[in-house]
């Protein structure tokens, strides 16, 4: 029904409905209170309307995140659809905020909504961008860290879309490992 409605309005329906979340670090509040659902969309046109309306990630203040997840999955590793999963992590150097951050994030969003991971697109849960003074991060979250074939396929396609050189490697961490260790100490499960 939703698909027919989108087409009748001359819009291009997406395979999934997506939810954009915004996180703003306010230390006077608990973590969950700082996380807000911005909106949901399910057509290409509504994605662009939203994207054009919100601030570029590079203009956000430190401590803020954007997350884009499939409708029904909350942007936290505790969600039942995330907790057995993990993330491909892109760690950026400080100067890349001005040169590559917005482009990487847009490419990430296009990969998600365009379902560009072939047979493994169902493995994708969402993506998160963290704006941090010490270095920004972008992560693509998948649902099953044990699905080596799916995870590595997604990683290869993702890396290609970001335009990363073959000399650069990106790593995948299971949320279960990240949750028990602090950031950079989490072990890397796969590399592409």
């Amino acid at each position: 029904q939703e698909l027919l409605l989108a087409e009748s309005l001359g819009k291009h329906p997406l395979q999934n409905r997506w939810a954009l979340w915004f996180f703003k670090n306010d230390k006077s509040k608990v973590w969950q209170a700082n996380l807000r659902l911005v909106t949901k969309f399910s057509t290409v046109e509504d994605f662009w309307a939203l994207y054009s309306h919100i601030q570029l990630a590079s203009k956000l203040t430190s401590g803020c995140d954007y997350s884009l997840f499939k409708d029904g999955i909350e942007p936290m590793w505790e969600d039942s659809q995330n907790k057995r999963g993990g993330r491909w992590l892109i760690t950026l150097a400080k100067q890349q905020r001005h040169t590559e951050l917005d482009r990487f994030w847009l490419e990430t969003l296009l990969c998600l909504i365009g379902e560009m991971f072939d047979d493994y697109s169902d493995e994708v849960c969402g993506a998160v961008i963290n704006i941090r003074a010490k270095g920004d991060k972008i992560a693509l979250w998948t649902r099953d860290a044990e699905n080596q074939e799916g995870v590595t396929h997604i990683g290869r396609v993702y890396k290609e879309h970001l335009g990363l050189s073959q000399k650069v490697t990106i790593g995948y961490q299971a949320h279960a490992d990240t949750a028990t260790k602090s950031g950079s100490l989490a072990k890397t499960k796969f590399v592409v």
Partner: peptide, 18 residues
């Protein structure tokens, strides 16, 4: 069923279409 897939070029064209 079938999956609705869009490539990068198509998505970017949609941004610029009226």
């Amino acid at each position: 069923g079938t999956r609705i897939i869009y490539d990068r070029k198509f998505l970017l064209e949609c941004k610029n279409s009226p």
